[in-house]
């Protein structure tokens, strides 16, 4: 039973409300900045190579008409979902629509691996039934196991992205550890030259240190799921630093994964924090109340 409950911790509905707003708005950004060639693929279908899911569900070939409809539907549904009004209806539209959007975007022979957590998040968010609508949802402290399951799924997908990257590195070498000592970063920099990288080419040992740190970090990433409080924060900062380094060296940002780290953050504390601040601005003598609220919020933070 303990194992089963691990998948469904009770977490405040407010965290899901914040995730809805941030992630649905992020999808709109994503459609313009990252997976942004889907509509273009409706115009030029020459290189279209449907992926397994597109074949399984017999999805139509991208065309100007269907990619334009998909675009409009996604924008509208994301804007609605982000307000926390009718978030479940909007969410059940966004999940399949964005999955199809990304599926088309990656149906040209190249698949990126930064969208797992975001796509999983979009499928699990609508399973959570809110108790408050609109802006009130951001402060809803009622804890729900359904919310906990959704948050846990996003956390698992974030961590899977790292851990499975280490698995892929082992697999490609025939299940031996050769990747960290190989010339993979040199290879990457030669193919995408830029000033930081070209300076590093002269110091291959530094690239090897980075490869070892990255590989060990990825391999140990599942530990983050059981860390609490500031240790979990430190781990999150390590991985965000890892992405900053990747962005500097490889020009690969992984923002769709990075934004999903918010599933680990105690976002439900934002509203109480602001309330306390405005209260203590008016009345400095509420120390007892604050201590009590703080303790309550801390209990959930590790979940």
């Amino acid at each position: 039973m303990k194992v089963v409950n691990w998948f469904t911790p009770a977490i405040a509905l407010a965290r899901v409300a914040w995730l809805r707003t941030v992630l649905y708005l992020f999808v709109i950004l994503d459609m313009h900045a990252f997976v942004r060639d889907t509509r273009l693929k409706g115009e030029h279908t020459g290189l279209y190579q449907p992926l397994f899911l597109a074949r399984l569900f017999d999805l139509p070939r991208p065309s100007v008409t269907n990619t334009t409809i998909l675009y409009v539907v996604l924008i509208v549904a994301c804007l609605v979902g982000a307000t926390n009004w009718f978030p479940r209806i909007a969410g059940w539209v966004v999940a399949p629509a964005f999955t199809w959007w990304v599926l088309i975007g990656m149906s040209d022979g190249k698949v990126d691996h930064d969208h797992l957590a975001l796509v999983v998040a979009l499928w699990v968010l609508p399973t959570v039934k809110p108790q408050q609508k609109g802006w009130r949802a951001y402060g809803d402290q009622s804890r729900s196991e359904a919310a906990g399951w959704a948050v846990r799924c996003v956390q698992l997908s974030v961590i899977a992205t790292y851990f499975l990257s280490a698995v892929a590195k082992l697999r490609s070498a025939g299940w031996v550890v050769t990747w960290p000592g190989s010339a993979v970063l040199t290879w990457a920099i030669v193919r995408r030259p830029h000033p930081v990288g070209e300076w590093l080419l002269n110091h291959p040992w530094m690239l090897h240190v980075m490869q070892w740190v990255g590989f060990i970090g990825e391999l140990l990433s599942p530990v983050v799921l059981w860390l609490k409080g500031r240790w979990q924060l430190l781990a999150a900062l390590f991985f965000i630093g890892f992405h900053v380094a990747n962005t500097a060296i490889l020009l690969i940002h992984f923002l769709p994964t990075v934004v999903c780290w918010l599933a680990f953050a105690p976002l439900e504390r934002i509203v109480p924090w602001f309330q306390r601040r405005s209260r203590s601005a008016g009345d400095a003598g509420q120390a007892e109340d604050q201590a009590e609220d703080g303790g309550k919020a801390k209990e959930q933070a590790g979940a």
């Binding site: 899911l53 697999r171 070498a173 190989s182 040199t186």
Partner: peptide, 21 residues
């Protein structure tokens, strides 16, 4: 092919020290 359930294989290959890039 099985995205999103495929391997996280971006930059996952071991490049030998004498590779032709």
């Amino acid at each position: 092919d099985v995205w999103p359930f495929g391997p996280m294989s971006q930059y996952a290959m071991s490049v030998p020290d004498d590779a032709a890039i």
